[in-house]
Design a protein around this nucleic acid. Structure first.
Length: 497
RNA sequence: GGUCGGUUGGGAGAGUGGCUUAUCCACUGGUCUGCAAAACCAGUUACAGCGGUUCGAGUCCGCUACCGACCUCCA
């Protein structure tokens, strides 16, 4: 139960206390999407995980510079074709049209899931100069060589000189030699199979290309992150993140490039998120378990029984730790939907109900404090959202218990109640980034509120007169409209859903 | 073949060498209620298998089985 933030560092494979380079400030770089197709649910989980980290760091009072790039060039498919170029060909669009289209889609989806915008969202194509400069530095330092207009990173020399190559992914260069397969397009040009391109000469049909000292071409995929993180966060910064499938080769090569150019580690803490599974397997077309965010919302998929709202999906994802694989299932989503509503209801009750005034710091008071502190400790422990959520649910029980009269208001002070209101609200909205999806519906303005009050009053009169026909009619009709009436000790409440 | 991770109750999913339950969903009983819903209380199902370390192990070590990711574009 750490009282300061600890994170699992992929670089050391250990949980370490987080100490920023500059006090009070954090530089964080996260590998963003390659904008060549619609955003994948797995991406959404990854960016949501880093969104939580970003939010929590901000909550802790850090001034965070959060950089998340857009890859719009240089990311090749295994047949050597550029991802963007492929989309250009298939959709008959300009490269920048492809990039804009899927960038827009990505942004829309990030907003739908309530992910905060990064401080800087640089694009690879806007940083060609920086990348060319870095290639030159790498060449000057003896770790790059040119072949037919393309430039490659000399992994063998780098590994011999520094011993750094393979540090992040746990791979040894000897293994890489035997592992590598001769299926890369430019294989023959490379001195060594594990070498990778940092500048590629453009073939005639390639639409995205820039002049450079070596050829008319484009930067290698791994290079953009090195160049842009260095530009905006400095040679060494605090946190570098991405999906764990990027660990090798992308992140390993990034480390190599930074060392090759500047002789230093790019980031002190490398954080990797785990994969999202669908029904126990990685989403893939061959398995037939792919579902898009839109299908998830609408329910139009054989994989799910109904649609689930973005916040339900977000809540569902928060119930697993970011470093564990998460299995997306219909049952899991259903459970998530109920849990999400329960949590949000408790928050509403908490904010609506005032402490009567007289109370002492008894056991209940202490329990509430312990739970609140526990939730913070959980977040400090490598952003453990599932455990923190558990604490929030235990607090929900206390809140509901007080409201229903099962727990005694005199056992806690008004200050504690006030603090609970602040803390709970901060956790749900600021840290976990949940939104009240019912708010839009039931906050339909004063008119709706007034009408609802009137209906509830009429129904209450019927109930007093034991006119069950009328009271049940109102309740049933409301149910048909997806409005749930809740009879409590202090009158009737209502909610949508 | 190599690297890394995983296997927890009906489902999802935390967790720690012992003492106090994760939590959510589902289920059972109860309280409340005109009835229901909601809420609250209580309860039922666990730590893949085998061996070892230990006074004591889901928790550490080893082996076996199974699963996954990466090694090739991928969050």
């Amino acid at each position: 139960m750490p009282s300061t933030l600890h994170v699992q560092n992929s670089l050391t494979r250990q949980k370490e206390e987080f100490k920023p380079i500059q006090e009070g400030r954090v530089g964080m770089y996260v590998c963003g999407p390659t904008v060549y197709s619609d955003v994948h649910l797995g991406n959404i989980r990854t960016f949501m995980s880093f969104d939580i980290m970003y939010r929590y760091l901000v909550h802790l009072g850090y001034k965070v510079r959060y950089v998340r790039n857009i890859t719009d060039v240089g990311h090749l498919l295994d047949d050597g074709e550029d991802r963007i170029m492929k989309a250009t060909r298939l959709e008959q669009l300009e490269p920048m049209e492809v990039v804009q289209k899927y960038t827009n889609g990505f942004h829309d989806m990030m907003r739908v899931f309530n992910n905060k915008r990064p401080s800087i969202e640089p694009r690879a194509t806007q940083h060609i100069v920086e990348q060319i400069t870095m290639v030159q530095q790498i060449i000057d330092n003896g770790y790059g060589y040119e072949k037919n207009g393309s430039v490659y990173f000399d992994t063998l020399k780098f590994a011999k000189d520094t011993g750094v190559y393979g540090k992040l992914s746990g791979r040894i260069l000897d293994d890489l030699i035997s592992e590598s397969r001769d299926n890369l397009k430019n294989q023959s040009e490379k001195n060594h199979p594990s070498d990778f391109a940092i500048w590629m000469k453009a073939s005639p049909e390639h639409l995205q290309h820039w002049p450079s000292p070596w050829s008319e071409g484009f930067p290698g995929w791994h290079l953009e992150c090195s160049a842009m993180s260095t530009k905006y966060l400095g040679k060494t910064f605090d946190i570098h993140g991405g999906g764990n499938d990027l660990k090798f080769p992308h992140h390993e090569n990034e480390v190599a490039q930074n060392h090759g150019a500047c002789g230093c580690d790019p980031a002190n803490y490398w954080l990797h998120t785990n994969m999202l599974l669908m029904n126990g397997a990685k989403m893939s077309k061959s398995v037939g378990n792919v579902i898009s965010p839109e299908e998830l919302f609408s329910g139009e998929s054989h994989l799910i029984s109904k649609g689930y709202s973005p916040m339900v999906v977000r809540f569902f994802m928060l119930q697993a730790h970011y470093s564990s694989p998460l299995d997306l299932t219909d049952e899991g989503l259903q459970a998530g939907e109920k849990g999400y509503k329960r949590l949000m209801e408790a928050e509403k009750v908490l904010q609506k109900v005032a402490h009567p005034g007289n109370g002492a710091a008894n056991d209940l008071d202490k329990e509430i404090h312990i739970l609140m502190e526990g939730a913070t400790d959980d977040m400090n422990d490598d952003f453990n959202t599932p455990r923190a959520l558990g604490k929030l649910f235990e607090l929900s029980s206390k809140i509901n218990g007080l409201k229903d009269g099962h727990l005694d208001w005199t056992d806690l002070t008004a200050e504690t109640w006030k603090k609970l209101q602040t803390t709970f609200h901060a956790f749900i909205y600021d840290i976990l980034g949940l939104k009240d999806e019912m708010a839009a519906a039931d906050g339909g303005g004063e008119l709706v509120d007034g009408l609802m009050e009137l209906l509830i009053e009429i129904r209450q009169n019927s109930r007093t007169n034991k006119d069950w026909t009328t009271s049940d009619l109102i309740r049933d009709k409301m149910n048909e409209l997806n409005v749930v009436l809740k009879d409590g000790k202090d009158g009737t409440g209502w909610s949508v859903g």
